[in-house]
Simulated scan of single mutants.
Amino acid sequence: MKPLKPFAMLMLGAMMLYSCSSGDNETAGGETEQESGLAHQEEAAGESAAATETAAADEGKGVGPVKTVEIGATIDEALANQGKSIFEGKCSACHQLSDQKVVGPGLAGVTERRKPEWIMNMIVNPEEMTKQDPTAKKLLAEHLTQMTNQNVTEQDARAILEYLRQNDKAS
């Protein structure tokens, strides 16, 4: 048998590739048109979510699940006591209630400087806050330590917020 000539081998290879094709049209990146369309939809949805989070950050509410917080004119003592217990167990190793920096910033006056939503979002969502929120980014740059996610629930973060409010009213 004669060896196949280069042209014949090229044609044979092309036919094999064509026969293995799924029939879907592919983009330059190797995705099918359908996959490419889904990727663009997901990208647009991600951009929309990022725009919403940026808008929240611009309003001083931070980035995260907390969009609104109802706070009373007076301190809820029971909630503040619960917050004190949580703060002492999860926060006090890095934060003082004074102006003193330990690992993280001192928290005296924080409820007067930040919106309640921002404080709660920083407690429950510290990684995303330091990636996306301008104020949190600045704090990270100043203190050089990423706040650890302590897996605090929104309810517990609300209790911590009440404790911080109590501390700021006493000052």
Score class of each variant (00 low, 15 high):
1 M>H: 11
1 M>P: 09
2 K>V: 08
3 P>S: 12
7 F>Q: 15
8 A>N: 13
10 L>C: 10
12 L>Y: 04
19 S>L: 14
19 S>F: 14
21 S>C: 08
21 S>Y: 09
21 S>H: 15
22 S>W: 06
22 S>G: 07
22 S>K: 10
23 G>E: 06
24 D>G: 04
25 N>R: 13
29 G>P: 08
32 T>K: 03
32 T>E: 01
33 E>A: 08
34 Q>I: 04
35 E>R: 00
38 L>Q: 06
38 L>H: 05
38 L>F: 08
39 A>F: 05
41 Q>F: 00
45 A>C: 06
46 G>A: 07
49 A>F: 10
50 A>D: 14
52 T>H: 09
56 A>E: 13
57 A>Q: 05
60 G>T: 07
60 G>N: 08
60 G>A: 04
65 P>Q: 12
65 P>A: 15
67 K>S: 02
72 G>C: 04
73 A>D: 03
73 A>C: 02
75 I>S: 02
79 L>F: 00
81 N>W: 01
84 K>I: 08
88 E>I: 02
88 E>Y: 05
89 G>S: 11
89 G>Y: 02
89 G>W: 01
92 S>W: 01
93 A>D: 05
95 H>R: 11
97 L>R: 10
98 S>D: 13
99 D>S: 08
100 Q>A: 08
101 K>S: 01
101 K>L: 06
101 K>F: 03
104 G>L: 05
104 G>E: 01
105 P>H: 10
108 A>S: 05
108 A>N: 02
109 G>Y: 10
111 T>L: 08
111 T>S: 02
114 R>K: 12
114 R>L: 12
115 K>N: 04
117 E>G: 00
117 E>L: 04
118 W>I: 06
118 W>D: 01
119 I>Q: 01
119 I>N: 02
119 I>V: 12
120 M>Y: 02
120 M>F: 01
121 N>H: 05
121 N>G: 00
121 N>M: 04
125 N>E: 07
127 E>H: 12
130 T>P: 09
131 K>V: 11
135 T>Y: 14
135 T>G: 07
137 K>S: 05
139 L>N: 14
139 L>K: 07
140 L>G: 03
140 L>F: 14
140 L>R: 11
143 H>N: 14
144 L>P: 06
145 T>P: 09
146 Q>L: 12
149 N>Q: 04
150 Q>K: 13
150 Q>P: 00
151 N>F: 10
153 T>W: 06
155 Q>Y: 03
156 D>V: 01
161 L>K: 04
162 E>P: 01
163 Y>R: 09
163 Y>P: 00
165 R>N: 03
166 Q>D: 05
167 N>A: 14
168 D>V: 12
170 A>N: 10
171 S>E: 14
